[in-house]
Design a protein around this nucleic acid. Structure first.
Lengths: 207, 207
DNA sequence: TTAACTTCCGACCGATCGGTTGCTATATTT
DNA sequence: AAATATAGCAACCGATCGGTCGGAAGTTAA
């Protein structure tokens, strides 16, 4: 009807597109996301949507970026104020649970990255690469925090950071499944129970 | 070209379709599976493929059934000969690792059910229902075996079977990701390390 | 006040989607 | 041998896919 086009307006439109794109993709997958559906949802034309990105793939990558920011804001940043080491690790894990919750969670269709990772884990291309990069970044952040906690004597000195990261990732993937597939109300508690074992403090007298 | 049509021949064709369908869906997802691609791969016409099932959804459900049989044959049946309880549980877990392996695993694109579960965990409909049913069945089987092991005194008496199932599912989802997304050669060992803790026998003197 | 640029739309493109129809060739039943 | 049933094909259906194009409306820079 009436094209609006100040620079600020344009950026707001772009953000609206990405927000909606993330919401759709968290349910239908990044591939199930279609330009037509997006345009209808936003009351725009397909050309208007695509004009901001040029290509569906670019839009998908931008959505990944956007989802990344949401994850960071929901899980990492709130814990940044907590003291480094085990305390921050525990805070991160608690925010991570909230982030995955069905009602108050960040995404309507469950963790965006779990969906994207499974969707693209057997394909090749830039999207898979981007997913891998993001995942590795997160794993590295976790491992760093764990290493710090070990060095501070808060976790047992024989802790293998990568092993712990491996088990944490699995735990939270399982939590996501329990919430999304079974709507299991106990899932959060089960996760916390597993965490108390995984993040058990080192016995007194270490270091 | 030349229609073949004995009853046995027809069933073999149906099986061929399902086999290929499973292979495709394990990579592209059950939704990414298309009749046209399937027909091309099999050297058939779309109508010839669809004639066996009537509907894409029916084909998807049949593929789920087929994948279920493969899983059972790869993970459950080989362990059926082992003594019930902890021994069988450990056997199942070992076969489960093999089943997920990149080279010798059952599916080219990683665990069919992990893919399907994540793909449909935020949707409604018969496919989601079928996935949920299969998953619950597997969880129940595992829980039963755990319960048996607890009653036999092989696992600590305070073991919560559902909690252990929860952690096992997470562990193997993580293993699938580590294999598919990162091709991590240590993933199997990490899984076994986690298992030795999760399936640690009860201390002597229990029961 | 222009001139250049940008946002967005409507219309359109070839390709592909799931699915239908009419038919032929073969198997099976009678 | 005749009648019936079925597997599979070619051709086609409307819908939708990602994407292109030219122009209209509006902003920004000169």
């Amino acid at each position: 009807m009436s094209p609006r086009k100040s620079a600020a307006e344009s950026r707001r439109t772009r953000d609206r597109i990405i927000d909606r794109s993330i919401a759709i993709a968290s349910v239908e997958g990044l591939d199930g996301l279609t330009i037509g559906r997006l345009a209808t949802d936003l009351g725009m034309s397909k050309a208007g949507v695509l004009g901001h990105f040029g290509t569906k793939e670019t839009l998908q990558l931008a959505s990944l970026d956007g989802a990344s920011a949401i994850f960071s804001r929901a899980v990492w940043e709130p814990a940044a104020g907590t003291a480094r080491g085990l305390a921050r690790l525990r805070a991160v894990c608690e925010y991570w649970i909230t982030y995955l919750e069905r009602e108050h969670g960040a995404f309507p269709g469950g963790c965006f990255f779990t969906t994207a990772a499974v969707e693209f884990d057997a394909r090749v291309g830039p999207i898979r690469d981007a997913v891998v990069r993001r995942s590795l970044l997160w794993r590295r952040r976790l491992a760093n925090e764990i290493r710090y906690a070990v060095n501070a004597g808060e976790l047992p000195p024989d802790t293998d950071p990568d092993q712990l990261v491996f088990e944490l990732i699995g735990l939270y993937t399982g939590l996501n499944q329990a919430i999304q597939l079974f709507a299991d109300p106990q899932a959060q508690d089960r996760t916390r129970r597993a965490l108390t074992r995984l993040l058990a403090p080192a016995p007194e007298g270490a270091r």
